[in-house]
Design a protein around this nucleic acid. Structure first.
Lengths: 344, 344
DNA sequence: GAAAGTTGCTAAATCGAGTTAGCAAACCCT
DNA sequence: AGGGTTTGCTAACTCGATTTAGCAACTTTC
């Protein structure tokens, strides 16, 4: 009985509980009992059972049954973590939508969805391993644990990874080292003497690379290291708090590289609060991952990759993988496109 | 033949094309041909056919077959339009994730996904009508066409609509009229004489209500109307352009209500470009739909509803609907929480 | 009182893929 | 030559829901 009770309620369970056939239950569930002339009393008994037993329909079964056999449905997903801000994927989403709209035809339809995993627990996402959820995915915002999982298992369908290098997958990422170095060049080129880099505490491969490349370039060019400012996370609030503390300890700070734009946004606030002008007193460089970086005050100078190129490459790889025109893992590097705006 | 060729390729198609049984094809697709001792030549022929015929697996069928019968899978979706900015739903997403994490148990798992429709074409979303995709959804960012569609058909599963009033669904929205009126009171209270309201060209029910309530309140309180500034859409760029034009025509403008925060962000830029100070020369009020409104410069005073309350109400309704504790449509109004910041 | 119609339900097939049990044929060994 | 083993594959069932065709039993009609 303990065993029996655990099994989820199906149409069949409901049917035998009420003492009718599954067909009758299904009729009621679809609200077609009038046209199929079920007795009102029976309908009520079935409804009662549905309520009592807490029936939850199996959407996979419904979909299999309901789909039009002349139309192929292709399911695409953008996989990101709950913890990453959604705006990070809005450009990828828009491009995927455009691509998909082009390829939609009467016999081939696409669905695009954004699916979230808990950062570091990608492996727990249902349907990933057994290929029962997607025909193709773009995976982004992974943590090292997720990367380890991906390295260990090659998923048996079209997968493109953004921002990481994994030998067994197609990957698209900014040219390693390039962004950080350019940020350093911009700041030092303006005459900054005490440049710092702000990072969140938890670093992804990309943010770590940006910070390291920045530090290395500063050391190369000046012989001195760059100060590292650690924020608790990547929210503006965290950036603001971290920078306030930093300015107390290093009042001479005159240049800042933020590895995410939200940190730069918080930094702006902290700088203005203590009366420093951007860029006159402190120059700031971001990476262009925020849609509205050009509307910050002052507009944020950015050294990130051109996201348009990144997402275009991702889509090309994804659709090539799905049509099996490309089979081998590839790495695509997108160089940073410097957006000179007012902040540096 | 034309008919036959149109039908999508299934395992069965592949099998008869190669001259083997579906079981053999399935074995190869799952990469289990070694342990099941298929002849290498056969494997190669099957692989070839998969490539040639462009086979796309049916994920619904896989899911039905692969799922663990002891675990009930509940599929939840947040439905938004491609055209609406993603950050609008980040709060709802976070709350849904929290709720779902609490309710997850060994015999009940939840999947959360964000699914997009083209604004005005919600009806085309696959699986919406036949309930073959979701066990429960939150629908948001609809256009009037979508609202009309929803009014016409009551979807047979748990649905909560955000920001619209539809008699046949559970709806959660800001108290009608409240935000616009408060914005008017704030601006007039500061002594503004020529208040204006910026809206995108395409109005949703919510943005229209905000603008109308604002105009009505201004008329009530001053006897004069409020000027309406129309931006091409709701991007900062559009807001900036619209405001530049408005300032040319109405140099005396001293107060602004933006029905979305992104428009306010663009307005800030236009105002600063022509040397107006915020709030000294022009006071600005937004609605708090942008995560970072508090980090704009100056921080944006907002009159929108408390999103925390909105999403909490949505989740309560959604789960009550799914457990059938509530069956009747309900309207929940969330009053605006005024965030007084520097911009007004 | 037989034909025709209505009421209220069910048996069985179906969707597409994966798995299990098992069957021939070929091969090996005494 | 007979028994056992390996090789290479297939028939048939399963997952959960929906639909179609159709069957009893009862009622109405002439």
């Amino acid at each position: 009985m303990a065993r029996g009770e655990k099994r989820p309620v199906t149409v069949h369970t409901l049917a035998s509980h009420v003492g009718v056939s599954p067909a009758a239950v299904s009729t009621v569930l679809a609200n077609r009992h009038e046209e199929r002339r079920l007795a009102p009393a029976t309908v009520e008994r079935i409804r009662q059972a549905v309520r009592e037993l807490g029936y939850v329909p199996n959407v996979a079964a419904r979909r299999l049954r309901a789909h039009d056999p002349d139309v192929r449905h292709v399911e695409l997903g953008i996989l990101t973590s709950y913890e990453a801000p959604l705006f990070l994927i809005s450009r990828a989403l828009r491009e995927l939508q455009r691509t998909v709209d082009q390829r939609t035809s009467p016999e081939r339809r696409y669905s695009v969805s954004i699916d979230m995993y808990h950062a570091g627990r990608l492996r727990e996402m249902p349907g990933l391993l057994n290929a029962s959820r997607f025909n193709g995915v773009v995976i982004t915002n992974t943590l090292p644990e997720d990367d380890a999982f991906l390295k260990a298992t090659t998923l048996p369908y079209a997968v493109v990874v953004q921002g990481r290098r994994l030998a067994n997958y197609c990957c698209v990422l900014e040219t390693p080292g390039a962004g950080g170095r350019q940020a350093a060049e911009i700041l030092l080129g303006r005459g900054c003497r005490q440049p710092a880099v702000v990072t969140p505490r938890l670093l992804t491969e990309t943010t770590a690379d940006r910070a390291d490349a920045f530090a290395a370039a500063v050391r190369d060019l000046t012989g001195q290291g760059a100060v590292r400012v650690t924020a608790s996370d990547f929210t503006p609030q965290a950036g603001s708090d971290a920078l306030r503390a930093h300015l107390q300890a290093h009042p001479g700070c005159d240049g800042l590289f933020a590895v995410t734009d939200t940190l730069a946004l918080g930094a702006f606030q902290a700088l203005k609060a203590v009366g420093r002008r951007v860029p006159e007193d402190v120059a700031v460089v971001g990476v262009g991952d925020h849609e509205h970086a050009g509307y910050f005050d002052p507009p944020l100078t950015c050294v990130g990759p051109e996201y348009g190129t990144v997402v275009a490459e991702i889509m090309a790889l994804l659709f090539n993988l799905m049509s099996r025109r490309r089979v081998n893992p590839t790495e695509v590097f997108v160089p940073p496109a410097v957006s000179h705006r007012r902040s540096a």
